[in-house]
Write a protein that binds this DNA or RNA. Structure first.
Lengths: 341, 341
DNA sequence: TAGTTTCAGTTAAACGTTTAATCAAAATTT
DNA sequence: AAATTTTGATTAAACGTTTAACTGAAACTA
């Protein structure tokens, strides 16, 4: 079996307390005995047991990572990329990440994640939107929570967020730069803060360039920002508004739905209508035409959330920080200069 | 704070031992007190602490997952998919997965993974090929190891493996079915068991169909099975052998290198030469022409390795099982019927 | 009825650490 | 030289469980 602190103590001819103190560099231990202890540790290749240490320190060295089953399993690896980024950075901070998913549909009797119930994590990362009542349950446990790509206004809390507002603005400014004046927004699930902010960026860009803002130019009433709903929204939009030359879809999924509708109707992209998305999902590069979009650095979101968690856990005062991660315009073939008419 | 077993004991008016025994369904506890205890547990919402329980049971409920940094970070998510599959299945078995990567290049003084040193895992999953001397170190610790997509012949050990042999055979039989008789194999890193078995499948298929087997038709001497080496190998192969009508590359990376070389030389695929790969990496579907290949179920490998680990941990006798996961032919556009000549 | 079993629980030790409280010896101060 | 402080270590309690050993009462057995 592995050596324990007792073995080290015996070998070094000191008490186990001395070993522990020596390990932690306590200055009441003389340099001489410290060396003796260290030698014994080396020889036995001793390492303190994490579970034992955790028992007394009430720290596990683990961070829980929660996301919905849907977010975990969906083919587009958005949240799994964040998770992998988190894994990577956790390693640098000597944490381990324990993953759990929230089942969907949520059972009536909500169960806490096992790692919370069993006190097996020091803090929790919540990735993406999760059901409100689930979040309530979590917040009852007094354990630090840090969000990534989501946040609630109710409690002010630490979060790593995408710069959705500026991303939305950049998208629209890209289109304006290409000469477009009649720019539509296609969105949905508008109480999702990310979408809301992208929309606000859209409004802000238009306003700043003194372009007309009209409700005719945006469609916000889909429930989910899915491909199918993008298709439907495009249909509605074009039914009531013929003069559009560009569309900003609130994410790539909807953008691809829009693309599908336009192509079915024989409207060519970008000649007739330019199209821009948001997220830079994997397929965005291989649709035809390839989709111009705002790339979200998913790995980086994962790093940042672990760093923020680390700061949260190591500051005795409760901090509430927002870290905002920028996005990058990926100009591809779905956007072009406005057609002369 | 969270309630402990003491709180439950006090509330139920019994000793903490009784609480523990009641939880574990020990029959020395009467139905009546068991109910009393359970009621107290419900009311307090008590859950045993994993670290505390782990201390005495010497079980952590965690499984370590090891792969090289390169395998973790490479853009093609082969091993990360296996990892995610493992995460998913771990959840079903009430394990958590702790991840660590092996740095490359390996430092001269090899350090054990932290989760092994700290006795924070019950078993270890090794994913993909890892350095031999690193593996030696691991095997010194008496902790169960289960491999996935790799194994060593030296110690016989439990492993979840891809059916490389039959996959290789299927690849070649697919080509034979299309009328090809002069089929090349392009490989490398031949002491990697997976590659070796794919090659053996190739040989077996040729033999079974009484087609000539000639060393002129295979190139095995690249060090790594990379895209660049696929390119080089194709060059060498075609320099010495003009009569080939089909190529089986040992994996998609090499296949894509082969594709690049052929296209540069104006050899059209599949009209002049058919090409088949192995793995079904993500780009395989979007090369042009799209690449026919053998799809490896990566998620499934992850599930299986956790199941095998679970069996290993719960059997008191040391088991050594091989689980072989089948592959599926994905016929795309890089293979076609042999041209009439 | 005395002796033995069974029942239903309790006591206490153990798991491997950390750390507050304590202590003996040495060094310093009066 | 006695009293005090400092030094360098030890002892013991604590963290939250599990479980072997024990116990007292009730229920059998001879």
């Amino acid at each position: 079996m592995h050596p324990t602190i007792k073995d080290v103590a015996k070998k070094a001819n000191v008490s186990i307390a001395t070993v522990s103190l020596a390990i932690h560099g306590n200055k009441r231990i003389s340099e001489e005995t410290k060396q003796k202890v260290m030698r014994a540790i080396k020889e036995l290749n001793y390492h303190p047991s994490r579970p034992a240490r955790g028992l007394v320190s009430q720290k596990t060295g683990n961070i829980g990572f929660i996301l919905t089953e849907n977010h975990f399993l969906r083919s587009e690896p958005f949240y799994t990329q964040i998770f992998l980024g988190a894994e990577l950075e956790a390693h640098n901070h000597d944490y381990y990440v324990l993953l759990t998913t929230i089942p969907e549909p949520l059972p009536k009797k909500i169960k806490l994640p096992r790692f919370v119930a069993e006190r097996n994590v020091d803090g929790i990362v919540v990735a993406g939107k999760i059901p409100d009542n689930y979040l309530k349950h979590l917040e009852n446990e007094d354990i630090p929570i840090v969000f990534v790509d989501y946040y609630t206004e109710e409690h002010d809390c630490s979060a790593v967020l995408i710069d959705n507002f500026n991303g939305g603005k950049m998208a629209v400014e890209h289109l304006i730069g290409l000469g477009h004046k009649n720019i539509a927004f296609i969105g949905g699930d508008m109480n999702h803060p990310s979408i809301k902010n992208r929309f606000n960026g859209y409004l802000s860009a238009l306003e700043q360039h003194q372009l007309p803002i009209s409700p005719k130019n945006y469609n916000l009433d889909e429930m989910n920002t899915t491909r199918e709903n993008g298709y439907l929204a495009a249909k509605k939009m074009l039914a009531r508004n013929k003069s559009i030359t560009a569309i900003f879809a609130c994410n790539d999924a909807m953008a691809i739905g829009v693309m599908q509708y336009l192509q079915e109707k024989g409207i060519s992209i970008p000649e007739d209508i330019s199209l821009i998305g948001f997220d830079d999902v994997e397929v965005a590069a291989i649709t035809s035409p390839s989709l111009t979009t705002l790339a979200v650095p998913k790995f980086e979101l994962g790093w940042e959330v672990i760093r923020l968690m680390d700061r949260t856990l190591n500051s005795n005062t409760i901090i509430s920080n927002q870290v905002v991660v920028g996005v990058e315009l990926k100009a591809r073939n779905s956007t072009g200069v406005v057609k002369a008419c």
